[in-house]
């Protein structure tokens, strides 16, 4: 059975691009436009992993990360930030909040493969 990945990004272009790459890697892909939508999804049917943007309306990625990690179902999900927040302080903040890996946009298939491999998803 294919692993599931939730792509959370308010940009449709990024969601489409990520979906294309992840489906090529064998994932079943779902998407959400903000942290609240992603949180609802994860509580209902936790995916194997989340590719997570930081800056989004309604609920940003950092708040989503903290909330989902506080839920029992959220502890086992691999969460990879994928963001334009590329300064070292943001990286530290994101990892301290419970992210498993961190992607600095822009990204390509090579980066996705590399980071997903780092956390044992492929």
């Amino acid at each position: 059975m294919a692993k599931t990945c939730l792509v959370v990004d308010d940009s449709k272009i990024v969601r489409v691009m990520a979906r294309k790459i992840l489906e090529g890697l064998g994932f079943e892909v779902f998407d959400a436009e903000n942290g609240q939508e992603a949180l609802d999804f994860c509580i209902k049917s936790p995916p194997a992993c989340v590719l997570l943007d930081w800056n989004m309306p309604v609920m940003n990625g950092l708040d989503f990360l903290k909330k989902v990690r506080s839920e029992a179902v959220g502890k086992g999900i691999k969460i990879i930030f994928c963001t334009t927040q590329t300064d070292a302080e943001s990286v530290k903040q994101g990892m301290s909040a419970g992210a498993d890996e961190y992607i600095m946009k822009p990204f390509d298939e090579g980066v996705i493969k590399s980071k997903f491999s780092e956390v044992g998803l492929i």
Binding site: T86, V91, M95, E101, Y102, I103, M104, P106, F107, D108, G110, V111, S114, K115, E118
Partner: peptide, 10 residues
């Protein structure tokens, strides 16, 4: 940033 994360964990 792009090259630094190809193959390198955070």
């Amino acid at each position: 940033n792009f090259d630094a994360q190809h193959g390198l964990s955070v």
